[in-house]
């Protein structure tokens, strides 16, 4: 079973996932170098599926590439570009290569990307895709055709705790959990009170026992990416005071780092949160500093300590 799957089964240890950089040309060796900063800290990393509706090397190719350089992948599958037949083929295809972690998303619309004239698909929606992956895991295609042996899948999804309708977001997350999601990577949230309310609602109803909640934190270097996310990324709003805090500081890069650190600390302190999903926009070694400040050890150390613990018991 994948490391992520084992951690989910254990139910108590910290889980760190990361957003792998997209691939636009280059070799496997180049890609390995790009992964080098974030990968050592992550239990698994997302092989993204044409992020923000921009074409890149495919999710499937990326997952296999990650597997080959020793990084555990999470295959992201979005509903924008492919119909249900192709989505099943992709999940079964990576399973052949030993990829087990699947993260199901509705996906940004084509208009969010650089080819807004493209046809959008959305044959399924995010919750339906979770249920479809669950069918594959149980050994059958959507048609009912048998899969023997059934692929061993670890199914997850995403949810945005920060956007409207705010009161409904936890219920939508619950719908995905009931459909079979065992981990939820949350969209980056710049409204701490919204994240708190979202996680508290899931926790109060026992959903955090069934599913690992992993809030996203984006390591930014200054006010630029904050302004960009606020204006251009669907579903993300960054309060003006948060942008001003970073923009007006004497040392914007350091202030941005402190903001990121606070976001991580805040998220990890919420009852029901199992870990973090990290995205690195800084690419300046800050992830090591961040993990050190949070007391998070590299994956290899966490792995071996967990083994020691298992042997001792």
């Amino acid at each position: 079973m994948s490391r992520l799957g084992e951690l989910l089964d254990k139910g108590d240890e910290l889980i760190i996932t990361g957003e792998a950089p997209v691939i636009d040309g280059g070799t496997l060796k180049d890609y390995e170098a790009k992964l080098a900063e974030l990968a050592p800290w992550c239990d698994a990393m997302n092989a993204t599926d044409n992020t923000a509706a921009h074409a890149h090397a495919s999710n499937v190719a990326m997952a296999i590439a990650m597997q080959r350089v020793g990084v555990e992948p999470i295959l992201q599958v979005v509903c924008r570009d492919k119909n249900r037949i192709a989505q099943q083929a992709d999940i079964m295809g990576v399973a052949l290569h030993g990829v087990e972690n699947i993260c199901c998303l509705t996906g940004d619309d084509v208009t969010a990307g650089d080819e807004p004239e493209a046809r959008r698909v959305f044959d399924l929606d995010g919750p339906q895709l979770v249920r479809l992956a669950n069918s594959l895991k149980e050994g059958r295609y959507l048609s009912g055709r048998k899969i023997d042996p059934a692929p061993s899948l670890v199914i997850g999804a995403v949810e945005n705790p920060a956007t409207h309708p705010l009161d409904y977001r936890a219920q939508r997350a619950a719908k995905k959990i009931l459909a079979g999601a065992r981990f939820l990577q949350l969209q980056i949230c710049y409204h701490p009170e919204r994240l708190e309310a979202f996680v508290a609602a899931l926790h109060a109803n026992g959903f955090t026992d069934k599913c690992a909640i992993l809030p996203t934190v984006v390591a930014v270097k200054g006010p630029g990416p904050l302004r960009f996310m606020d204006s251009s990324v669907p579903g993300i709003s960054v309060p003006v005071e948060t942008i001003a805090r970073v923009a007006d500081a004497d040392d914007s890069a350091e202030e941005a780092y402190q903001l990121v650190l606070e976001q991580c600390q805040h998220a990890l302190a919420l009852p029901g949160v199992r870990g973090l999903h990290l995205t690195d926009f800084r690419k300046d070694g800050s992830i090591s500093r961040l993990c050190a400040d949070l007391g998070i050890r590299p994956r290899s150390e966490r792995e071996s300590r967990a083994n020691d613990f298992a042997l001792a018991n």
Binding site: C79, R80, T106, G107, D108, D109, A112, R120, F122, D125, G126, P127, Q128, V158, E159, N160, T163, H164, P165, Y168, Q171, R172, K175, Q187, P234, G235
Partner: peptide, 12 residues
């Protein structure tokens, strides 16, 4: 997006 199971994460 013809979503039948709730809003996507892109609501403004």
């Amino acid at each position: 997006k013809t979503l039948r199971n709730g809003p996507c994460g892109g609501v403004r």
